[in-house]
């Protein structure tokens, strides 16, 4: 009985977190959007009347203004901010204080997602098989779930609603072990340049370095789940994040792809050990509607 209670409670917490995420961005991301709006406005106002950049900057500023209006409407109406309510990607971290089994957690997660999809008027965006029938599951299930052990505390579920306009811009490169930081930088910049206006810029960039091919891409999602604007604890990787952030602005993709002065809202890099013969680089891009949610369940933190 105890477990039934816990399961229902966890499902309810997942539902609540997703209903909030589909209509609201995290305060740190809202602050970044405000920053970009102010900066883009000053840059636009600073242009002379005949400046060739005027059209591009004004259109970019219009995109940022519409995003603000859209977020206000989503807040007021409870409508999803974007009709692509995505596929749920969940990182489940299990500490020693967790009293539920993996199966129970998985079931609670599924039912929490199904409830949010129904109550939040999500779009049914998941199909059963990728190649042949592509039959819609009508529940947005299954989610993509990754399981991790944790040394202390209870259960932490980090989720994102991953839209596919941006997910289709994901990329992997297997670099030489001697590539070095310059090649890592230029490889990632090429990936972002190729994505261009397609992933609904302004973007949040997640980069995964090391591991194996699939691990690098997983790390890039882990990076996207970090709080927007947080800095990597290793100063070398923190510098890499800053270099990427600055260089992406230099690509002049701009909001909506219109060529404005700023494109990146934030960059996060995660790394892990890798093989002597390789340097995997995984990249995941999030649109500005970078919808994330965290559920803590049981234990301290």
């Amino acid at each position: 009985m105890m477990d039934h209670h816990q399961k229902d409670g966890l499902a309810g917490a997942v539902r609540e977190a997703l209903l909030h995420a589909v209509t609201h961005l995290e305060p740190s991301l809202m602050a970044r959007l405000d920053w970009m709006y102010r900066e883009t406005m000053s840059a636009t106002e600073a242009l002379g009347p005949d400046d060739g950049k005027k059209d591009r900057y004004e259109a970019s500023l219009e995109v940022l203004a519409m995003i603000r209006e859209n977020l206000a409407i989503a807040d007021a109406t409870g409508l999803p901010m974007c009709q692509d309510t995505g596929m749920v990607v969940a990182f489940v971290e299990m500490g020693p204080d967790v009293q539920l089994s993996m199966q129970e957690i998985g079931e609670a997660l599924d039912s929490g997602i199904a409830l949010a999809v129904r109550d939040g008027f999500f779009r049914n965006s998941v199909v059963l098989d990728p190649v042949f029938d592509r039959e819609n599951t009508r529940t947005n299930l299954p989610a993509v779930v990754h399981w991790f052990p944790k040394n202390s505390g209870g259960l932490t579920i980090r989720m994102m609603l991953k839209g596919f306009g941006s997910e289709n811009c994901s990329a992997l490169a297997m670099l030489n072990p001697t590539a070095g930081v310059e090649t890592v930088l230029s490889t990632i910049l090429d990936m972002v340049r190729n994505a261009g206006g397609k992933p609904c810029p302004p973007i949040v960039l997640g980069v995964g370095l090391g591991g194996t091919a699939e691990r690098a891409l997983l790390l890039s999602k882990k990076a996207l789940l970090r709080e927007v604007g947080s800095v990597h604890p290793d100063p070398r990787y923190a510098r890499l994040e800053q270099q990427l952030f600055d260089s992406i602005q230099g690509l002049h993709i701009g909001p909506g792809g219109f060529g404005g002065p700023l494109t990146a809202l934030a960059v996060a890099v995660e790394y892990e050990p890798t093989h002597i013969a390789g340097l995997p680089v995984g990249v995941s891009i999030s649109c500005w509607a970078d919808r994330t949610a965290v559920v803590q369940w049981g234990g301290a933190q």
Binding site: E62, M66, N70, I73, L79, P80, M81, C82, C200, A289
Partner: peptide, 13 residues
Amino acid sequence: LIAFGGCGALYAT
């Protein structure tokens, strides 16, 4: 014509 990406709630109105 380019519509504003991600602005689904706005377009609903």
